[in-house]
Design a protein around this nucleic acid. Structure first.
Length: 507
RNA sequence: GGGUUGGUAGCUCAGCUGGUAGAGCAUCUGACUUUUAAUCAGGUGGUCGCGGGUUCGAACCCCGCCCAACUCACCA
């Protein structure tokens, strides 16, 4: 049953501190100080100021005077007032810099106004020249100061900062103010996406955008979010995958295409799952899944090196070796290698089921499964968590691969692989199924499964079959989970650490 | 959805066997011209997640609910 998200009356919490700060804004207004000023811009950043003086001898900088003036703007994150001298730390988008306010430099009245108006958390603009303090810290000696924006909410404590994970995710803005490494992770995320985009562009892939609102469920095995179009009075679902639209573009002769955007799946939330996640999906005409493996290991190894400086990347205290070539095994080989099954047992449904039971997979679940499904269950349960270095697992059964091309030599299997790293799936790829008759048969099976209560089964997509009937060139396609890839490269334990505003229940 | 742990001041956390709700930082007042977790003196600040119950008395015990983290299930 749907829960009512909106509360009766929106109430913003207020305490004594906030009340006082609000009153202060009124007092400042009476003194002619605008607590929400604008039109005053800095001419540089803290980072640039520091870079400018980093080679100057410290001794010379200890005496103030005669140097160029710089203006910076940012948030006051620390303030130490000692009578007629005050130090503040100003944080801007690039970093932070200590600034000093003195009565002698600013004049008595102006200094008093500064003391009265400026508090921790406020956003201010200052101008002055640099000097170096006794403790040899580069500091801007302020002669001009403008309060830009008052903060009326107290910042978290300076020593411990903001550590409560719930608050950090809910109030990401505050997390960004207090925890510098957060911004770093998200800047890296952007670099990763940019790298991938450049890599695709350099290899002549065309970036496209396909619909997020779908009339049908297709492209993956997942439960969708449902929504409603009012004017058309029709049910729509948020896409679980862009696959079938991108393949329609292959039919249309668009050539190599890719899309980097969100998918939505109405499933559990975990350290590896967010209801909306970013996928890079691409399709490559006249290529096979084997071409795709070479392309992928080249791209990701180069990406790892570009981002971290090495193909050896430490994730959660264990090293992942991204250097190509990557290990390749079939699903069946991986099960044999892991010592889970023998070659003979793989062909024997009841033997497989017995083994599955010993691996803690529920007997009820196994009973209804085919040999191939039990095999995949065993793989997911036993092998997947052990695949730490990048590994391509190939030869997935046709039964669990509704959109992949059946292998030439055995149509129980497909020309498909999944890529695993750090014990998790990062990508899924295959040579594409382009035989409309086979695809239609698969859709019919899926539609029956859906009738039978399988909530993750596809809808029949008649237009897609029609498109295939016009002929889709042989092609390989792949989807890469961007959030998960970012997690590995920024050493994030949870997907929430690489999503700016992860999904949370309302407060 | 199940299990475990947690929710006490704006933040970080104490709070014993049920007996008047605490500290540090922030905030307010005062002192202070080289601090950087500044320091010193004094003050303000609480729906103890929410709702019931037990009890002379509940932050603490019991029941229900909400939220989160971790974990399992599901999934990429």
């Amino acid at each position: 049953m749907a829960k009512e998200n909106r509360k009766e009356t929106p109430i913003i919490d207020e305490n004594e501190v906030i009340k006082r700060k609000k009153e202060k804004i009124v007092q400042l207004k009476e003194l002619g100080v605008n607590a929400y000023a604008n039109g005053v811009a800095p001419d540089t950043t803290t980072e640039k100021v520091i870079a400018l003086y980093k080679d100057e001898p410290l001794e010379a900088l200890k005496t103030p005077g005669g140097r160029e003036k710089h203006s910076i703007a940012g948030r006051v994150v620390a303030l130490r007032v000692m009578g007629k001298l005050a130090f503040a730390r100003i944080k801007d988008e690039a970093g932070s810099l200590q600034v000093a306010f003195t009565r002698d430099t600013m004049g008595e009245d102006f200094y008093k106004l500064f003391k009265k108006s400026c508090d921790i958390g406020d956003i201010i603009w200052v101008e002055g020249e640099v000097f170096v303090t006794r403790t040899e810290e580069l500091t801007l000696l302020v002669d001009k100061f403008t309060l830009l924006t008052k903060s009326i909410r107290p910042l978290p404590e300076k020593f411990h900062g903001l550590t409560d994970k719930e608050l950090r995710y809910r109030q990401r803005y505050l997390d960004l103010i207090m925890n510098d490494e957060v911004k770093k992770s998200f800047v890296t995320r952007t670099k990763i996406v940019k790298f991938i985009r450049n890599f695709m562009d350099e290899h002549d892939f065309l970036e496209v955008e396909t619909p997020m609102l779908h009339p049908l469920v297709s492209g993956a095995a997942a439960k969708p979010f449902e929504t409603h179009h009012n004017a058309l009075d029709m049910k729509l679902v948020l896409r679980i995958a862009p696959e079938l639209h991108l393949k329609r573009l292959l039919v249309g002769g668009m050539g190599k295409v890719y899309e980097i955007n969100r998918n939505f799946r109405n499933e559990g939330i975990s350290v590896k799952h967010n209801p909306e996640f970013t996928m890079m999906e691409f399709y490559w005409p006249y290529a096979t899944y084997e071409d795709m493996m070479l392309f992928t290991e080249k791209m990701i190894a180069k990406l790892a090196e570009e981002i971290t400086g090495s193909t050896q990347v430490v994730y959660q205290e264990k090293t992942i070796d991204f250097s190509a070539p990557w290990k390749r095994m079939t699903v069946e080989e991986s099960l044999i290698e892991a010592g889970v099954v023998t070659k003979d047992a793989l062909k024997d449904e009841s033997a497989l089921k017995e083994i599955a039971k010993t691996k803690g997979i529920s007997a009820d679940k196994i009973e209804k499964m085919s040999r191939f499904k039990v095999m995949m269950e065993l793989f997911d349960e036993v092998v997947e968590p052990t695949l730490w270095n990048p590994t391509f697992i190939t030869k997935y059964p046709s039964e669990v691969s509704p959109l992949a091309r059946r292998s030439e030599d055995d149509d129980d299997y497909t020309d498909r692989y999944e890529l695993f790293m750090a014990g998790r799936e990062i990508a899924n790829a295959f040579s594409e199924l382009n035989d409309p008759a086979v695809q239609l048969a698969v859709f019919q099976q899926q539609a029956e499964a859906k009738q039978g209560g399988d909530e993750e089964a596809f809808d029949m997509d008649v237009d897609y079959i029609r498109a295939l009937e016009y002929a889709m060139p042989p092609a390989a396609g792949q989807g890469i989970g961007i959030d998960r890839l970012v997690m590995l490269l920024v050493d994030a334990p949870s997907i929430r650490d690489v999503i700016l505003f992860p999904h949370m229940r309302p407060e």
